[in-house]
Amino acid sequence: MSSLVECRNVTKCYSNGRPAVYNLNLTLEKGHIIGLLGPNGSGKTTLIKMINGLLKPTNGEVLVNGILPGPETKARISYLPERTYLEAQRTVKDIVDFFGDFYEDFRKDRAYAMLDALHIEPTARLKNLSKGTKEKVQLILVMSRDAELYILDEPIAGVDPAARDYILRTIIANFNPAATLLICTHLISDIESILDEVVFIRDGQITLQTSVENIREQQGKSVDQYFREVFAC
């Protein structure tokens, strides 16, 4: 079986000197929930944007399902960016309809079930929702697609712990065993129980890719503890 994402000698330079990602190699298989972990400025978001086709590598290549990122791969990737791109004037229902029109794999019933469970009114306008509720709406939209690859950039940072639990449970319950979920976050201890693999990134390079159970078994530590040790300042 071929891998889902393949990065080969990928380098990305912005105009200001030091590359954000340098000669990076990474393979992500199908059917895993993977944590992409690294300190600030380590290249996480740059890497994610290249997988999404929002940035082009300066050198090397990124392949998704064996092809270069483009309309075909974007139809199969559900991406939660760091920052919102939704219009604040619109209602939740408007946006659900918009997603339903835009993505073939969008499941409206799933979106409404999750909105209901988190007590979010479909008639509410985005601008009138709290920061955390807005984040919940975005995450619900992203998880309501039947994608092959979900990429979540800091998905739970602004969400209260109870809703975090619900969201994580929802992710597991809806998770298609053939799909892959890449979660980029600093809140490691909150999510590590749902991960099966972690990728550590530092200075634009992958420093570790392993199963989380390996870390627990070999280091006798949680992923969170291990991360703090590896990236100690």
Partner: peptide
């Protein structure tokens, strides 16, 4: 889902 763990685990 009940336990809050990865299905593979």
């Amino acid at each position: 889902a009940v336990a809050g763990v990865n299905p593979n685990t």
